[in-house]
Design a protein around this nucleic acid. Structure first.
Length: 478
RNA sequence: GUCCCCAUCGUCUAGCCAGGCCUAGGACACGACCCUUUCAAGGUUGAGACACGGGUUCGAAUCCCGUUGGGGACGCCA
């Protein structure tokens, strides 16, 4: 049988990190089986049965997040809400079989039961007071909820691909609500019916659903359906060790995109969080698809570590295509009103990219580092760079300017050779010669090789920037 | 509180299922050194963990029991 997985988020906010990883694992599992000729379908289902909390904006955020990560789903996304009629059919079947019943409890009664359960140190809340009651006892005018009549004794067992065999006593589980008083289906019902109808074979989701799996198993059994294989993956925790939540800060994948992270780095990081393949750290998507198995998922929760993500992102940055990076930077630069883009900016960014990308861990960092290439003369100069333009510094810079003006070989090597000559002639160290040039060219004190920069900028622009500095023409930064 | 789950460097993890190859390996972060025109990158290197207590065994990070610690679930939310 072909493998079918699904990602089933509820559209109540952005696509958070945990959800993204769940989606990734489902996607990887499906694609792995696809590659190995065993079906491999990855479905997207929007669990929008809670009308009050579901928004179209959140649905769009999920599409955007998944698309950014490169996780493509098969077929159209399924709206759970749209399938309510079908869900009610399943309940009719259960009612007819005597596996479900009407419950007329008021919210007050329920609250009371909850209190009692707590006081008596029991897990099961609902006391089953309408379970075997005569329907004619129904209070006039009240609309009931439909509950599943679950077994009172014995155990429910799930054979989880990650957690192993987990058993729970049925006395821990109460009669869950299937249909609300307004006759809309609950999540528990909808999930089971939808997974069954779409032939889902593997339910890969967060560990927080483990207890739901027991209830759902009972539902499957009542409906006479086969259960899918469950795989409950450990949750991602924040730095404090608690389940990742809003108070941990930037958690939507869109926030990481805005912070300049690459989707392939994010994917790689998320994959390694809880899953491993020996000592491998940098894993391509093809390798991930090839290697991914549920048995390599660890059982303990992992903490989200931005530093490691950042390092990994840096590695992907260095591998990234120069043209792509240059264009990415350029398009962001064009949106910045404060930047005066030079005509030669595209060309310089592309040529300077090898030196630039090695020094940038994120796109945002790259943007900052690349600014001096893209901007029009005169470039603003920061405080530390100004210090390099002391009288001594300017003297060296003047000597360098003269030498540069007479340099024919405008290559990295030729420029380096000229600088070395200045160094020899003045008795100053090469570093002392390079420092004021760097200041003049970039307005800062940290940059790629000054010879690379001279080369990329070209003779005219380079000498112009040096003249600006010598004449004190550059505006102060900040 | 009840039920379920988890437990190797600060963090992510390999090793565990099929005990000896483990004086526990890798990665991030941190320290030192090298390279060097700055900053990175790169190279070498250092510090850093089997939660604790009992068993079983010739031998336990690996198997069993308990303790402690952490997490999750306990809705007419999903």
């Amino acid at each position: 049988m072909g493998v079918v997985t699904r990602f089933a988020p509820s559209p109540t906010g952005f696509l958070h990190i945990g959800g993204a990883r769940t989606a990734l694992f489902n996607w990887l599992f499906a694609r792995h089986h696809q590659v190995h000729g065993d079906g491999g379908t990855f479905l997207l289902r929007i669990e929008d049965t809670d009308r009050a909390r579901s928004t179209q904006a959140a649905v769009d955020a999920i599409y955007d997040g998944l698309s950014w990560l490169g996780l493509d789903w098969d077929g159209d996304p399924i709206s759970q809400f749209a399938r309510a009629e079908r869900h009610r059919e399943a309940v009719d079947q259960l009612l007819a079989q005597g596996n479900a019943y009407k419950c007329y409890c008021t919210p007050e009664e329920l609250a009371e039961m909850r209190e009692t359960a707590k006081r008596e140190k029991r897990n099961r809340m609902y006391d089953g007071r309408w379970r075997d009651r005569d329907p004619s006892d129904a209070p006039a005018g009240a609309t009931p909820v439909i509950r599943l009549k679950v077994p009172l004794e014995r155990d429910t067992v799930i054979d989880d691909a990650v957690q192993g065999r987990v058993t729970v006593a049925n006395e821990q589980l109460d009669d869950m609500v299937l249909l609300r008083a307004d006759s809309t289906p609950t999540y528990m019902l909808a999930v089971v019916v939808d997974d069954h109808d779409t032939a889902v074979t593997h339910v890969i989701r967060g560990d927080d659903h483990l207890t739901n799996a027991f209830r759902q198993t009972q539902l499957y059994q009542a409906l006479g359906w086969d259960t899918p294989k469950f795989a409950h993956i450990p949750l991602i925790h924040g730095p404090d060790g608690a389940k990742l939540s809003k108070r941990h800060g930037a958690l939507g994948v869109d926030a990481y995109r805005d912070d300049g992270f690459l989707p392939e780095a994010m994917r790689n990081y998320l994959l390694r969080l809880g899953w491993s393949h020996g000592d491998d750290e940098v894993i391509s998507t093809d390798q991930a698809i090839d290697w991914f198995t549920l048995s390599n998922i660890g059982k303990s929760p992992a903490r989200f570590d931005v530093q490691k993500l950042t390092n990994l992102n840096g590695q992907y940055m260095r591998q990234a295509d120069d043209r792509f990076l240059a264009e990415t930077v350029l398009s962001r630069l064009r949106d910045m009103a404060s930047v005066r883009l030079a005509e030669a900016a595209p060309d310089r960014l592309f040529k300077g990219m090898p030196g630039l990308k090695e020094r940038s861990k994120t796109i945002n960092e790259l943007l900052e580092n690349a600014l001096f290439y893209a901007t029009e003369r005169p470039v603003p100069i920061d405080e530390k760079a100004v210090q390099q333009l002391s009288p001594d510094g300017k003297q060296l810079l003047t000597a360098a300017r003269d030498k540069l003006a007479r340099t024919d070989d405008w290559s990295d090597e030729g420029l380096m050779a000229s600088a070395k000559q200045v160094s020899e002639e003045t008795g100053a160290k090469l570093g002392a010669v390079a420092a004021p040039i760097r200041s003049a060219l970039t307005g800062g004190t940290q940059s790629p090789s000054v010879f690379e920069i001279l080369h990329v900028l070209g003779r005219e622009e380079s000498l112009g920037r040096i003249d600006d500095a010598l004449g004190g023409l550059q505006p102060l930064k900040q």
